[in-house]
Amino acid sequence: MTHRKLRRSGLYLLLIALLVVLLFPIYWTFQSSITPSRLILSTNPPLLPIELDMTAYADVILRRPILLWLGNTMLISIVATFVGIVLSLLAGYSLSRFRTAGNKIMGFLLLLSRMLPASLIVIPVYMMFSGAKMINSYTALILMNITNIIPFSAWMMKGYYDSIPRELEEAANIDGCNWYGAFTKVVLPLTLPGIAAVSIYSLILCWNEFLYARTLAYDQARWVFTVGLASFIGEHSINWSQIMAGGILFIIPLVIAFVFLEPFLVGGLASGSVKG
């Protein structure tokens, strides 16, 4: 018994030590954002919070357009996720229930999107949108985010549909439901955990998107948060506390959503279908 207890405490100690190392970057970002600049810009910075100072947050919110960028990120992420999910719900159902050439094509598209460097595909995409006079438009960014989502989420949704017995729909058909009725009343409610997983995955993907946002919008008013944050790096004297405060504000919604929805997410990710 004592031997087991000892091993158990050893395991916890190991895990906690590991977490301290692995989560240190996030902790240090947070610590840098709440410690006064005069202390943090030092060759002997305090490792633990000793003096709480929120001026970096006030400065970054008041002096930089980060709320605008955050708003842009939210708008693009939410619209793209919503549309992407609807399209994937339909496509995933077809992939799961019908054996057509569509399965092969969709499988090929998934492989292609895994192989294609985004920094390559952004070149013709830029040409297309600049030809259509859509540079600096939300529509362009939303469309590209939807395209990012679909190949993965359609296959993730197929996996969830596969786990629902066809007999349920057949029973609904016998009861007089047409295809649409069976889909919305029987199948969709059962895939809610799947929809949750795919939604959170897509939201994270959109929230993190940088390449298209940086390339397809040069107008500061249309920047998303990642682009704005990266622009601080090029400045003459980098204001670290502000960047760290901005970074923390940006990842808070992400971390909260992740912590609560992680159980849904892990199932979908583990099927090997996703690499974000």
Binding site: L19, L23, I26, I204, T226, L229, M244, V259
Partner: peptide
């Protein structure tokens, strides 16, 4: 809880992750 915390970095945007390391690797501070 441990699992969630261990895989948390997966959700952090690449841009934010690399800026975190840029700051941690700053030449002076």
């Amino acid at each position: 809880v441990f699992r969630t915390l261990v895989i948390l970095p997966w959700a952090i945007p690449g841009v934010v992750a690399s800026i975190m390391f840029l700051w941690m690797g700053d030449a002076t501070y």
